[in-house]
Computed example of a mutant assay.
Amino acid sequence: MAHPSANKMFCSPGIFRLILFLVGLCFVGYTMRQQLFRHNSGDASVGSSCPVCHCDCSAETTLPLPLDCGKDNPETNEEMKKDVITLLTEEISLQKTVIDDNLAHTKALIMDARKSSSHYQKEAEKCNTGMETCEEAREKAEAELTEERKLSLLWENRARENGWRDR
Rank of each mutant, 00 (worst) to 15 (best):
I19H: 05
S48R: 15
G42P: 00
Y30N: 12
V46Q: 08
M32A: 02
Q34F: 03
C50Y: 03
L22E: 11
T31C: 11
V46R: 13
G42T: 03
F37E: 07
G47H: 12
F21K: 11
R33G: 04
G47C: 01
V28Q: 02
L22M: 13
V46P: 00
C50R: 12
C50M: 15
G24S: 14
G24T: 06
L22V: 06
S45Q: 05
D43F: 01
Y30Q: 11
P51E: 11
V46N: 10
I19S: 11
G24K: 13
P51R: 03
F21P: 01
A44F: 01
I19K: 09
Y30V: 05
V28E: 07
Y30D: 10
F27K: 14
T31L: 14
V23C: 12
R33C: 03
F27V: 10
S45P: 00
P51F: 00
S48Y: 14
N40K: 15
H39M: 06
C26A: 14
F27C: 09
N40M: 15
H54M: 03
Q34K: 02
F21V: 05
A44V: 03
V52A: 05
V23N: 04
R38S: 08
V46L: 11
C26Y: 03
G24W: 10
F37L: 04
V28W: 01
Q34S: 04
P51M: 07
S49M: 10
S49I: 14
R33F: 02
V23M: 14
S48I: 08
S41Q: 12
M32V: 10
Q35V: 06
Q35A: 14
S49T: 05
